[in-house]
Design a protein around this nucleic acid. Structure first.
Length: 401
DNA sequence: AGCCATGATTTAGA
DNA sequence: TCTAAATCATGGCT
């Protein structure tokens, strides 16, 4: 590399100043030019101390002169000069001077602070897309996780597999669009970068283009495209969120339980009418039996209790129906206490015997056996909350006492 | 469309 | 944390 020292700090330039003194970085050039005005001075430090140094300074001054007058010449002349400059033995020196000047100009300052540090927002979006199964590997992952989360927390019954596939297909649609767009952007980015790099390479024949400048330019392009990508990711996230909220919003997708499930729940309810508070274990059994979640069982019992209590008369018929049903399968003499499903039979008939102490369907609108039994015991209908430790395990005895 | 049934959610209390 | 009670929101029937 050529030494730069002799090119700077050499006193005032001539009045002509090469016509470039207005440029922010051109004071250096002025200084560069200056030696040409004092060619005979000699005796300076560095290169100036040698014959070679004098020679170099004179050459650079000549080159700059030529550059500055180039616009006054015809195109052919200019081309010839350009060629001459390209072939000039001092070209590398001038080139490095210009590089140094460029280094100090706006481009280097402007982008200094833009240097990469991962955008936290982008990281968040990436993580979310990964979690949702939009980004990352195609199979399993987020989509399946979202679906399983939906079933476990939202309480969708297994027969909502239709919705699952719907959700999956919609998610894969979003995924498809996302990846297509992402690919497009990446391709465009690559193309554009290549184009710009070619352009810079082309320009590097006539002006100094440092690798760092190319790097910065590429950085700028990538940042621009990354902004677009962020927007794409944001939109994708929004789409997934909307899809998810619709899918998970159980209210929106409320489905009545299957007849079998409702029957199972009712059987338990009416056979434990004196204390319709299933234990945790019983809830789990019921959930399993009815193909619903434990929380749905809780909801159902909560609703049932309050609605039954509010309008016992309305539920009389239903109560009688289940009383008959249950009575039919009661085994005479079987009074062993157990949870409904402890036998694993899938029927609540055995435990039902406890509350069927009257077991007789009422005739034409009279108070039902359940009603009499429950009220005479002053149980849950008369209180605001269940007794501490209320459990179906103990409720068998509280009526027959 | 209107009504009722029903599953889910919210709020307050113990 | 569980429950009662009120309320919301949807399904399904007429």
């Amino acid at each position: 590399m050529l030494q730069q020292q002799p090119l700077t700090g050499n006193g005032p330039s001539n009045g002509r100043g090469l016509g470039v003194s207005g440029h922010p970085g051109m004071h250096a050039l002025n200084s560069v030019h200056q030696p040409s005005q004092h060619r005979s001075d000699g005796g300076d430090s560095g290169l100036e101390g040698t014959e070679n140094g004098h020679e170099n300074r004179r050459d650079i001054g000549d080159i700059l002169q030529q550059i500055m007058t180039i616009t006054d010449q015809s195109l052919d002349e200019a081309q010839a000069k350009k060629h001459a400059l390209n072939c000039h033995r001092m070209k590398p020196a001038l080139f490095s001077v210009l590089c140094e000047i460029k280094e100090k100009t706006g481009l280097s300052m402007r982008n200094a602070q833009e240097d990469e540090s991962q955008d936290p927002q982008l990281v968040r979006l990436d993580n979310m897309l990964l979690a949702e199964g939009v980004a990352g590997p195609e199979k399993g992952g987020g989509a399946a996780a979202a679906v399983s989360a939906a079933t476990s927390s939202g309480g969708l019954s297994p027969d909502s597999s239709l919705e699952h596939s719907d959700y999956k297909s919609k998610l894969s649609q979003i995924r498809g669009i996302y990846h297509t767009e992402l690919e497009k952007y990446e391709q465009a980015c690559t193309e554009f970068t290549t184009h710009v790099m070619n352009l810079l390479r082309e320009q590097s024949r006539t002006r100094p283009v440092t690798p760092r400048e190319i790097e910065r330019m590429v950085g700028i392009i990538h940042r621009k495209f990354s902004t677009i990508q962020t927007q794409l990711k944001q939109s994708t996230c929004e789409a997934v969120m909307i899809l998810r909220s619709r899918f998970l919003d159980a209210r929106r997708k409320r489905r009545n339980f299957s007849k079998q499930a409702t029957e199972g729940l009712n059987e338990y309810f009416y056979s434990h009418l004196s204390n319709p508070y299933p234990s945790e274990e019983a809830k789990e059994d019921l959930a399993k039996l009815c193909g619903i979640t434990v929380s749905q069982v809780c909801n159902w019992f909560g609703n049932k209790r309050i609605r039954y209590k509010k309008n016992i008369g309305k539920f009389q018929e239903e109560a009688n129906l289940y009383a008959m049903k249950t009575a039919l399968v009661v085994r005479p003499g079987d009074d062993s206490p157990h949870t409904p499903n402890s036998t694993g039979s899938g029927s609540f008939s055995l435990s039902g015997s406890a509350d069927l102490f009257l077991g007789v369907p009422p005739v034409n609108g009279e108070q039902s056996a359940y009603q009499v039994g429950v009220q005479s015991n002053g149980n849950w209908l008369g209180r605001n909350s269940p007794p501490p430790g209320a459990s179906p395990h103990s409720d068998h005895s509280d009526i027959s006492d």
